[in-house]
Simulated assay, not measured.
Amino acid sequence: MTTATVATEAGGDNPYALSHLDALESEAVHIFREVAGEFERPVILFSGGKDSIVMLHLALKAFAPAPVPFSLLHVDTGHNFPEVLDYRDRTVERHGLRLHVASVQDFIDRGELRERPDGTRNPLQTVPLLDAIEKNRFDAVFGGGRRDEEKARAKERVFSLRDEFGGWDPRRQRPELWQLYNGRHSPGEHVRVFPLSNWTELDVWQYIAREKIELPAIYYAHEREVFARSGMWLAPGEWGGPKDSETLETRLVRYRTVGDMSCTGAVDSDAGTIEAVIAEIAASRLTERGATRADDKMSEAAMEDRKREGYF
C-alpha cells in the first residue's frame, strides 16, 4: 500500500493524515534524499517543461536550506520553443545551478547523427544523452516521466536500471516493496530515477497551483500561428514546417506538454489561468502525450523501442 493510499483511506478525521498532494510530495522528497545517499554523481534532466519544473521544485524542497547537490542536464534538439529555453536559463541563474547541455545539432554537425526525413529530432536525443552520461560519469539520472503518460512508462519502476549501453530491459526491473529502492549497479551501468512516477497530469497541475510555481507562458492559452498535420496543430519553424500544402492560421491554443517543435502539438483552448487548465484536464480522457506527441504515434511500441535504446 502506497503512502498516497494510506493518506486517502485515513480520512479527514485523522489530524495526522497527509493530503493526497502532501503524500506525493513526501514520496518524491524521500526519493531525492535516497539517491543523494546512494549515488555519487546524480543529475536532473531539465528541459523547462512542467514535469521537470515540478521535479526541480521538489529537489529544492528536499535539500533546503542547503543547495541542490545535483547539476542539471538538458538534451537540446535545436528545435525547442524559445519561451521554454528562456525559462530554463532564468531558472538556472535564479537558483545558482550548473547546467550541462547536450546538443543534437553538435552531433549532426560532426556527422555522428543524420537528420530524419520528417524533420523531428526527438528520436535523435538518445545518442547525446548517453554521451553526456558517459562523459560526466553520471550514475543516477532523474527524469520527469510519469506512469499515466504512456504504457511503456507505466511498466517502469521508480529506480530503473539501465545497462552499459543505456538500454532498458523490462525483465531486469526490480521489486520496490514498501518504498525500498535498490540502486545497486555494475560499472558502466546507471539508474534512471522517476520521482513523479505515481503522479498524474492532474496531480502535477494541482501541485503547481498549490505551490504557485511559475511556468513558461505557452502552457496557458495564447494566440499562435499553427498549421494542421496528422491531426495536430504544429508551430512553424526551421525544422521543416509548414509544407506547401499546409496553411498557417492564427488560433487560440496552449500546450499540454513541451518537446521538439516538430512533434509537439498544441490544443485549442481558452484556458488562460491555472484554474481553467485544471478544469480542462479534469474533463479530458486523453493523456498529454497521447493527444499531442507525434513521436509516440510512430508505432504501438514507439516509446518502449526508444527506451530499450536508451531514451528517457
Rank of each mutant, 00 (worst) to 15 (best):
R110H: 10
L124C: 02
L85Y: 03
Q105R: 13
A64W: 14
L202F: 06
N122R: 07
W205I: 02
R137N: 15
V101E: 12
N182T: 10
H100L: 14
A154C: 05
G143W: 00
V127I: 13
A66I: 09
R110A: 15
R171L: 15
G188D: 01
D131M: 08
G167K: 00
S103G: 02
R146E: 08
K135T: 15
D89K: 15
H74S: 07
D203E: 09
W178P: 00
N198M: 09
D86V: 09
R90A: 13
L124V: 04
S71R: 15
P67D: 11
V193C: 05
F70N: 00
L73C: 11
G96F: 05
G144N: 07
F159D: 00
E150L: 11
V92R: 04
F81V: 03
L180N: 15
R153F: 12
N136S: 08
P187N: 06
R90M: 07
W178G: 07
R157Q: 12
L99I: 13
D148A: 09
H190S: 08
K135A: 15
R157H: 09
A152E: 09
G78E: 01
D109Q: 13
L97S: 08
W168G: 01
P82S: 06
R116Q: 04
T120R: 14
G119L: 06
D86S: 14
D203M: 10
G78M: 01
E112S: 13
V191G: 00
H95M: 09
H100P: 06
F159T: 02
D109T: 10
P65Y: 02
A140P: 07
E112C: 02
V158M: 03
L196W: 09
G111S: 07
